[in-house]
């Protein structure tokens, strides 16, 4: 049994209820939205093709629509990423999660990382932006560098992973990101988080948002 350090309501408010599967049906998206309403999750995190449907279903709801951008390879030119972000906003997205060009970061092309994050923030027009690093592919040094660039460019959050590669979020990486960013920015832990215990450990390490496809199980598992 988990120690009651956080209420169900508080934890639910930190969860991006996520469904990015290639074969997700309209019915699956409906279920996701209904659950998000019922449990008061922060958002539904979905592929851009599903934004209009989620928008319709969540009309008048406090649940936000979070769009997964540049998924899940991330290797797109900055102008294409900015276009996709604008398109997502135009269709009704409230939050934008974008994977960086990991290869550009590795090659030391920080100008590209800066340009793509600036484009994302510009396209977001004040909406929440989350910069995904795909930490399992990066060294600690690269993670620190990417966090610094994201902070400089005005992103709202830095996020560990897409969830498509293993391992997803780790305590070590979340701590490192929080240390680098300080308190002024958000840290989203995502990928491989399936239990209340894991979610609480991520929050303890410095995360203030959790991306998971197991939101219902996590909330039900919190005593």
């Amino acid at each position: 049994m988990m120690k009651k350090s956080i209420t169900k309501y508080e934890l639910a408010g930190m969860i991006d209820h996520t469904l990015l599967k290639i074969d997700a049906t309209y019915d699956n998206i409906k279920k996701l939205c209904l659950e998000a309403e019922k449990y008061h999750f922060a958002s539904v995190a979905i592929n851009p093709i599903h934004i209009p449907l989620a928008k319709k279903l969540l009309k008048g709801s406090r649940v936000k629509i979070c769009a997964a951008l540049a998924f899940y390879i991330g290797a797109y030119p900055p102008e294409i990423k900015e276009y996709e972000a604008r398109d997502a906003v135009a269709k009704g997205a409230d939050e934008l999660d974008m994977l960086i060009n990991v290869g550009a970061l590795k090659a030391g092309r920080y100008d590209i990382i800066e340009e793509e994050i600036k484009g994302l923030v510009r396209a977001a027009e004040g909406k929440i932006t989350k910069v995904i690093l795909e930490t399992c592919l990066l060294t600690d040094e690269e993670i620190v560098k990417a966090c610094q660039i994201a902070k400089k460019c005005g992103a709202s959050f830095v996020k560990t992973s897409t969830g498509f590669r293993k391992p997803g979020a780790t305590i070590h990486h979340v701590k490192l990101m929080r240390e680098t960013l300080g308190t002024g920015m958000g840290v989203k832990a995502a990928g491989g988080i399936h239990t209340a215990e894991q979610a609480l450990a991520m929050i303890q390490a410095g995360a203030n948002r959790i991306g998971t496809s197991s939101g219902v199980e996590i909330i039900e598992g919190l005593e």
């Binding site: 990015l20 290639i22 592929n47 851009p48 093709i49 599903h50 934004i51 997964a68 998924f71 899940y72 390879i73 797109y76 294409i80 276009y83 996709e84 398109d87 997502a88 269709k91």
Partner: peptide, 15 residues
């Protein structure tokens, strides 16, 4: 829009 196909028609056309 590779490989998930999760991108909108507009984004695909831009790509």
């Amino acid at each position: 829009s590779y490989p998930l196909g999760g991108m909108t028609t507009e984004t695909k056309i831009r790509q």
